[in-house]
């Protein structure tokens, strides 16, 4: 079943790579029966020293955030204790759809905040880090200086807010609001 093989060989999903007695399954592989198979399209890596076979992907992996990913999203709904974020960008890659994330008040800011309404409001663009994917939910954090709201809109008139000192100011209706703004707050002209 397994013919001639070498490291760097191009493999497609389902290609048998080794017998389980020969090699341990590494990333990009799976075991069924007595064989190690590839589960992605890529290049086979045979680690003869550690007796491990893995597949280095040739295709982009599915755009799903992992713990530590920096994501960009839109705030969907806000409660006192948490808010829902619709994740649109993971790292530098845009999602073809979106994924839901949750930002809890305890992960929103390095300081004490009264409610999540002082962190973000629905419609805001927010940059956050994924800190956990427990319970199949992406838990977000905006504690870091460069994380937080990157673009906010006035909740009275809808005009974009500008960051002035530590407050968010609406140039159109002179409204002043609170946000946990990122140090990378966008300046739109």
């Amino acid at each position: 079943m397994i013919g001639e093989r070498r490291s760097g060989q191009f493999v497609t999903p389902g290609t048998p790579l080794a017998i389980i007695e020969e090699f341990l399954p590494g990333p990009g592989t799976y075991v069924e029966g007595c064989y190690v198979y590839s589960k992605i399209t890529g290049y086979m890596l045979l680690d003869t020293l550690n007796k491990k076979v893995s597949v280095y992907p040739a295709v982009k992996s599915p755009n799903v955030p992992t713990v530590g990913s920096i994501v960009l999203g839109i705030v969907e709904s806000v409660n006192f204790k948490s808010c829902d974020v619709s994740i649109k960008v993971v790292g530098r890659r845009k999602l073809s759809g979106s994924l839901m994330g949750v930002l809890h008040i305890s992960d929103a800011s390095p300081h004490y905040v009264e409610s999540v309404f002082d962190v973000c409001r629905p419609g805001d663009y927010i940059k956050a880090e994924v800190i956990s994917n427990k319970n199949r939910t992406f838990h977000l954090s905006t504690v870091d200086r460069n994380l937080g709201v990157v673009l906010a809109f006035c909740s009275r008139c809808g005009y974009q807010l500008s960051k002035e000192n530590r407050r968010m100011y609406c140039k159109r209706c002179k409204n002043v609001e609170k946000r946990k703004a990122s140090s990378e707050y966008w300046v739109l002209t």
């Binding site: 999903p13 799976y30 198979y37 589960k39 992605i40 399209t41």
Partner: peptide, 11 residues
């Protein structure tokens, strides 16, 4: 599906 990088048992 393979091009999308979705893990597959086989083609």
């Amino acid at each position: 599906l393979a091009d999308a990088g979705i893990p597959m048992r086989d083609m």
